[in-house]
């Protein structure tokens, strides 16, 4: 079954992607040679601390890298469409149509001067040349599908009249309006309280089940990942350090960084020993240690860790980039 999943056509295929800020000797490689695949209808988590490069990677997919940043190598394919070889205009035309972004802060992502209904229907008007009247009626439908009560009335309201959870659901409705192939959710639940967070996660799962949408879920919240994702990529300091199915990542974390992340996460059923923080801080892009970039914070680091880490298969589709993974045996 796992093999079958792998054989399915992939919606997003990133290969050896590197993104750098600045030029020449001053350049900082923020995303370093990452490869990532999302199958159709798959929910993939991208976990990492702040500054690990996960948001920059998603911006590269959208073609919205900030000024000064550029892709230095690699390829990004959206259902076999090589995006990096396309013009800016073409990439703009698929944003909001074939790829949609659900941003972190919904309130600040909605224009305060526009009625919610119009904003939710806007991508339809923009990409499908739908009339405003049709876009609006469709927006009401979408708002209803994300469980907003009284969508006819609500669509006539302004964003500040919505609660945080309602705003986030409106953003999801907007993202769904064109039934995109890929939904990029950049920490969409961070600003929400736990009960609303659960509703939003249920909603995303329902979206996947109904429309077979692929979702790239970017977060630093391991609880959310365990709850929602099929597969997980763990990113550290611009590189992927471990990837695998979600149950394996949690039951058998095979990279000291992943283990560290899990140990630093509070759990209800865990022993009351307190949380174990990872010592030190994420290194700056130009101050990374040679070889394994986690080695300066790793409790298990050896001199050999100064060589470039290679992928080591730990289980079905489960790959770790830690050289000592076999001897450490996933004990945490």
């Amino acid at each position: 079954m796992k093999i079958e999943a792998n054989k399915r056509s992939s919606t997003l295929e990133i290969e050896n992607l590197s993104v750098a800020f600045g030029q020449g000797s001053k350049s900082a490689v923020v995303v370093d040679n990452i490869s990532l695949k999302i199958g159709k209808g798959e929910i993939v988590g991208l976990i990492g601390e702040s500054g690990s490069g996960k948001t920059v990677a998603s911006l590269a997919v959208l073609g919205m890298l900030p000024r000064g940043a550029k892709v230095v190598q690699g390829s990004i394919k959206l259902t076999n469409d090589p995006l990096l070889e396309r013009t800016d205009d073409y990439r703009r035309s698929i944003r909001g149509d074939r790829i949609a972004l659900i941003p972190q802060d919904a309130l600040r992502s909605l224009n305060p001067t526009g009625k919610v209904g119009y904003q939710v229907g806007e991508p339809l008007n923009l990409h499908r040349s739908a009339s405003w009247a049709f876009a609006r009626s469709k927006a009401i439908e979408l708002l209803r599908s994300v469980n907003l009560s009284d969508p006819e009335l609500r669509s006539e309201e302004y964003p500040h009249q919505f609660s945080g959870g309602m705003q986030q659901r409106a953003m999801i409705a907007m993202g769904l309006s064109t039934e995109p192939e890929l939904l990029i959710a950049d920490e969409p639940t961070t600003a929400l309280d736990v009960t609303v967070q659960a509703q939003v996660l249920d909603l995303l799962r329902a979206v996947r089940d109904q429309h077979d949408t692929s979702i790239l879920f970017i977060t630093h919240d391991l609880g959310v990942v365990a709850n929602l994702c099929d597969r997980v990529y763990v990113m550290y300091s611009g590189a992927i350090v471990e990837e695998g199915p979600v149950d394996q990542i949690f039951s058998n974390p095979s990279h000291p960084y992943t283990q560290g992340l899990l140990d630093a996460t509070p759990r209800i059923h865990g022993a009351m020993t307190g949380l174990t923080p990872i010592p030190g801080q994420i290194p700056l892009p130009n101050k990374r240690p040679v070889g394994c970039r986690f080695s300066d914070r790793c409790l298990f680091a050896l001199p050999q860790c100064a060589s470039t880490p290679k992928p080591i298969t730990v289980g079905d589709n489960h790959i770790s980039y830690c050289l000592r993974v076999k001897e450490l045996g996933g004990s945490s």
Partner: peptide, 22 residues
Amino acid sequence: QQQYIEAARSVGMSHSRILIIE
């Protein structure tokens, strides 16, 4: 500088449309 301009770019709006609508 507002994030909704970023959001507008993320749904694929052109410069002129962002200027006029957003």
